[in-house]
Design a protein around this nucleic acid. Structure first.
Lengths: 331, 331
DNA sequence: CTGAAAGCGCTAACAC
DNA sequence: GTGTTAGCGCTTTCAG
């Protein structure tokens, strides 16, 4: 059996309250007694039982992190950032994988609630009201990372997707491209509502280029989907001058479809991705991308959660981190 | 305040022990009373407090997972497998990221111990005795995933690395290659001890090919490292006919170094990777690889842990899953 | 500044 | 079959 606060108290010849006070620094303790207690703690290797502690305080030092897919590069980087900062403040990570299913998201929120987690970081492809309401109801501090987080009154981290998308489209236009395809991972919602689409559209408008609906394409987030879509374009002979995909994987799929059909990238067609996950710089030709500061987004999310837990002020609700356009070989 | 067992007991007109009995099925309860209790539970939406429960049983339904790097594709897939099976048995995942540092590994083992996790799945580049001893001492059921797990008396999951490595080397030899480089991510240990190296060496021996030490190369696990090493080989004019890298990322780095120096793959040089992470099929030329069933390894690890927790028999300590050689464009 | 005691929500003897 | 009760290890009033 591990040593408990009782043992320490007995060995130090004080009451357990005193021991509790020194380990929590919750109330003044005369320095000689404090030293005595500290010595016993060191000798015995005593570690407070977090479960018992959590039972009485109704708090834990656990941050619940809900993600749609652990095995994605994006989420991996995000988790690194969260973990790193979380650990700095002595918080641990409780991981929930939802596969993007709303039902599972709800289930996990309830679970985290019952675990009395100190905070929740919620990562989702697309936020929905029921989930947000459930979290709000729980009163647990929360931060969101999602494309549409700014549609809700919640703390969130993101980049300016519309601007980023505008930048990339504009970059292509500047390079003399007119026929620019927009490849997007659909999430059952209206494409018109998508920030990225808005940025793309606006850039075309500002340059007086007509939007060609046959070049606005929806897939899912996999590279296979990007492959199929571009292959279809090729079959139809509707080959664009540039392809702007809304994720790196989608871009890789598009790239492979072109290469496999002996279409040169970037000579015949330019390609750009979105996110700058590790793969973007690993493939050849390497991908021109909009870089999202993914690790930083995780780190900032963790920082915010910690602040919220400590009741500190958080300047803004919707934090926008800077994005960058990274030019590589694919354009 | 959430509803507690007390509230349920009062509303159902029974004692809290009875309520406890029905939620745990721990002792017989007459069916009418059981129904009554169940109804109140449903009405109130009562959920037992896992913290309180854990305090008295000294157990939780949490599996602690210690990994070297969450953001790696390998670990991501592994986690998917663990999570999926874990969830099936109602276990949750507590995530610990060590960056491969022994000190942090030890710290986390202690943490998991104090959290009273039900089991530990330990993923590491290279297992060391102190860590294993600490886990054993804790009496917590544990499963290991690591190249050198079989050097210890622990439950572990893996593939037959020596055979896999033999297979790949043999494959190259069969294709008429004689000058086969072996690229390896070193982990400060003696390369001679590495199973993969042994397989490589044996395949050469069996075919009467002399081992050329200038083609046995060590890097770290990044693609940059693979890039540098192969670049160096090119500078020296010591270009092999085939390169067998001990990870996909390493192989990608090697591949890029060749492509960037206008050396054709697979015409001039063949390349093979190891693991079959998602990137292997995403790049062009796609990578010939030894496929480790990563997801399955995670799933099996979770299954074993659950069995150990339930004191069920586990047939073997060291479980070897089948590997496959997948031939793609790079060879 | 320190100790005694109540209680967090639950399980598990122990009685009846 | 069911209820009473003693903790699990800790924090936190409340006295002193």
């Amino acid at each position: 059996m591990a040593v408990t606060i009782k043992d320490v108290a007995k060995m130090a010849g004080v009451s357990i309250s005193t021991v509790s006070r020194v380990i929590n620094n919750s109330k003044p303790v005369s320095s000689d007694i404090r030293d005595q207690v500290l010595r016993v703690i060191k000798e015995t290797g005593y570690v407070p039982n977090p479960v018992a502690r959590s039972l009485v305080t109704k708090k834990s030092n656990i941050i619940g992190v809900i993600v749609p897919d652990i095995s994605s590069l994006f989420v991996g980087d995000l988790l690194s950032g969260i973990e790193e900062i979380g650990r700095m403040y002595e918080y641990d990570i409780f991981l929930c994988n939802t596969y993007g299913e709303s039902e599972r998201e709800l289930k996990y929120i309830n679970l985290l609630k019952s675990k009395a987690v100190a905070g929740i970081i919620f990562v989702s492809e697309k936020l929905e009201k029921p989930q947000i309401d459930l979290v709000k109801e729980s009163q647990i501090p929360s931060v969101y990372i999602s494309k549409n987080a700014k549609d809700f009154d919640v703390y969130s981290i993101g980049i300016d997707h519309k601007q980023a998308s505008y930048d990339m489209t504009h970059y292509f236009i500047n390079k003399g491209k007119k026929k620019i395809a927009f490849l997007r991972a659909s999430v059952e919602d209206n494409i018109e509502d998508s920030e990225r689409y808005k940025g793309y559209k606006k850039a075309l408008e500002d340059s007086g280029i007509d939007l060609d609906k046959s070049l606005v394409l929806q897939g899912d987030s996999t590279n296979e989907s990007g492959y199929r879509i571009v292959e279809m374009l090729i079959e139809k002979g509707n080959i664009p001058e540039a392809i702007f995909a809304s994720s790196d994987e989608l871009a890789v799929g598009a790239l492979n479809a072109l290469l496999d059909n002996r279409i040169n990238v970037p000579k015949d067609v330019s390609i750009a991705g979105y996110d700058d996950t590790r793969i973007a710089s690993m493939i050849r030709p390497s991908l021109t991308v909009i870089k999202q500061p993914i690790y930083d987004m995780g780190a900032v999310a963790a920082r915010i959660i910690v602040k919220l837990i400590d009741n500190q002020d958080v300047e803004e609700k919707y934090i926008i981190l800077p994005h960058t356009l990274i030019e590589r070989q694919s354009s």
